[in-house]
């Protein structure tokens, strides 16, 4: 896609995006995603016609940056409440499947 004239995504590029997104897609899903993404991006290319050379981006409507509160402790949720959100708890710790022997 770096090439402005190329309106498609290779299967490798689509695979890279899926890996970054932590989505395990089958080959067929990846193939479909590649075409869908290319089609949408092909349309979205119309942004290139807008001159934004001296324009600052807007990251939020209030143009606010790093609003900080005072660094004091506030009441939060109890550990037990949070641990009760999953059934995968052992000895007070979260568990995940074994992936190393």
């Amino acid at each position: 896609m770096k090439d402005a004239n190329r309106n498609e995504l290779t299967i490798e590029e689509a695979g890279r995006v899926a890996a970054l997104a932590r989505l395990k897609l089958s080959d067929a899903e990846l193939e479909a995603a590649r075409f869908e993404l290319a089609r949408v991006l092909g349309h979205f290319r119309q942004l290139e016609t807008v001159d934004t050379s001296s324009v600052e981006p807007v990251f939020n409507p209030q143009d606010s940056v790093n609003k900080l509160r005072e660094d004091t402790a506030i009441e939060g949720l109890e550990r037990e409440q949070l641990m009760s959100l999953t059934e995968y708890v052992k000895d007070g710790c979260l568990t995940v499947p074994r992936t190393v022997d």
């Binding site: 890279r16 970054l20 997104a21 807007v58």
Partner: peptide, 21 residues
């Protein structure tokens, strides 16, 4: 993820935020 990924961030994500301005 594509729009934020390295190599595409400026051309897609940042471009969109500039048009937003």
């Amino acid at each position: 993820t594509f729009a934020l990924s390295s190599g595409y961030y400026d051309a897609w994500y940042l471009k969109a935020q500039r048009v937003r301005r």
